[in-house]
Amino acid sequence: MRNLTKAASLALLAGALLAPAVPASATTVADAPFSVFDVKVKASKTVKPGGTIKYSIVATNKGPYEADAWFVGGAFPKGVDLKRIMYSTSVKDTECGLEGRAFYCLLPVVLEKGDSITMTFEAKVKKNATGTQQATLGVVSYDLQTGMDNMSKEELERLGVPEHGYGKTVKTKVVR
C-alpha cells in the first residue's frame, strides 16, 4: 500500500466521475467513446468510527479500442480522512492526486479490449463519523488523439476532448 497524501497534477482531472456516463444508445458513431469501461466496485458493509473502509474497483475495457488515457478513483465519503487513504495495485509507477473529495490515480498501462485492472483503496474513517458513508468510484477515460498525451487538462477542455465517467456508488454504514 502507498500513502496518497502526495498531490499530483492529475488531480485536476477529478470530478468527471461524478457525472454519469452517457448511455451507449444515446451516442452516435462520431461521439462514441474510444473505450467503454465495465466497472465493479465493492466496499466494506460496516465500519466502526476510526476504522478502515476497504474499496475494490475492477475495471474492464469493453472497447472498441485500447484505453491509454484513463484514471481510477472517485469521490470519497465526507467521514473519511482523505490524508490517510492508501492504495494498492499491481501497476508500477502509478501516480495519484487529490482535489477536494475526489482522489484519482493514473495507471500508466494500456488496456487492450477485454483487459481488466484491479485497484484497492483503504480509507480511514474519522472518529466522529456517523450514519452511512457514500462513495462514487470508478474510471474516467479520455478520447485522446495521437500527440495529445502531454496537453494540460485546460487545453483538452478548450479543444473539447471528450471525457467519459463510469462510476458506481457504494455505501458503508458506521456502527458503534
Rank of each mutant, 00 (worst) to 15 (best):
R2I: 13
N3G: 12
L4G: 09
K6M: 14
K6T: 12
A11M: 07
G15R: 12
G15P: 06
G15I: 04
A16I: 12
A19Y: 10
P23W: 00
A24S: 15
A24C: 08
T28L: 03
A32R: 06
A32H: 08
P33M: 01
S35C: 09
V36T: 15
A43C: 07
K45Y: 05
V47S: 10
I53P: 08
K54P: 03
S56Q: 13
S56E: 15
N61A: 01
P64I: 01
D68F: 12
V72C: 04
V72I: 14
V72D: 01
F76H: 07
L82N: 09
K83V: 00
Y87D: 14
T94Q: 02
E95D: 06
L98F: 07
R101C: 05
R101F: 14
A102S: 15
F103P: 00
V110A: 09
E112W: 05
T118W: 01
M119T: 11
A123E: 04
K124N: 11
K127P: 06
A129Q: 06
Q134F: 05
L137H: 00
L137D: 04
L137A: 04
V139A: 05
V140C: 07
S141Q: 12
S141V: 06
L144V: 03
E157R: 13
L159R: 12
G160D: 03
V170A: 10
K173G: 08
K173H: 08
V175R: 10
R176N: 13
